[in-house]
Amino acid sequence: MPNAMFKKFSREEVHSRSNIKSSVQRGLKAKLIEQFPGLESVIEEAMPKKSQMVQIKCSDKVTLYSINSEVLFFQSFDDPLVPTIKFVHKYPEAFPRVKVDRGAIKFVLSGANIMCPGLTSPGASLPESPGLDVGAVVSIYAENKEHALAVGVLTMSTEDIKSINKNCGVEVCHYLGDGLWNFSE
C-alpha cells in the first residue's frame, strides 16, 4: 500500500466506473467480514443486499467501491480492503484502533507516516497485547479527539512498536483532507 496514496487525487484519475454484480458484491462482503470481524453485525446496514455497488477504477491500480455515490472502501491492487474515513466515522466500533498524541495530528493531516514514539507517548494508546500483526488495517485516532483522522496499515506489530519504539510504525494511506476525502462523484 503506497504511502499517502490519495495525497494528490482528483476526478481526473478515475478511469472507469461500473456497477458490479451482486455475486461479486457478496464475495466482497465476505472478505470484509473476514478482515474486520467487528463489521459483521452492521454489514447489512452498511451494504444492504439490494444496494448497487459501483466499482471505480483509478490510476495506479487503485479501486474504490461506493454505494449511493459514497465511497466506502478502497483497495490498491490486491492488498487488503481499507475503509474510508467517512465509513470509519459511521461504524467506529468495527475497526481496530490506535491513538496518536496531539503533537502528531498536524503531521498526520499532511500525510506523514506515524512514527512509533507518537504511538507510545502518554497521550497515545495502542491495543492491549496480543495486539495486532504487521499489515493490519487500523483506524487512527488522536488524543482528546472523538473521531478518527486517518486510516493506515501497520508496518510493525503493535507489540514491536511498544518494545522497539523507533522508526515508522503505521503507514498512513488515507487521511482527513486528502484527495479521496474531498472526492465526490
Partner: peptide, 16 residues
C-alpha cells in the same frame, strides 16, 4: 450508525 457532524467550511469533523 454514528452520525458525525462535518464542518461546512473545511469539511472536517469540527474537533479537527
Amino acid at each position: 450508525t454514528v452520525k458525525v457532524v462535518y464542518c461546512g467550511i473545511c469539511s472536517f469533523p469540527p474537533e479537527y
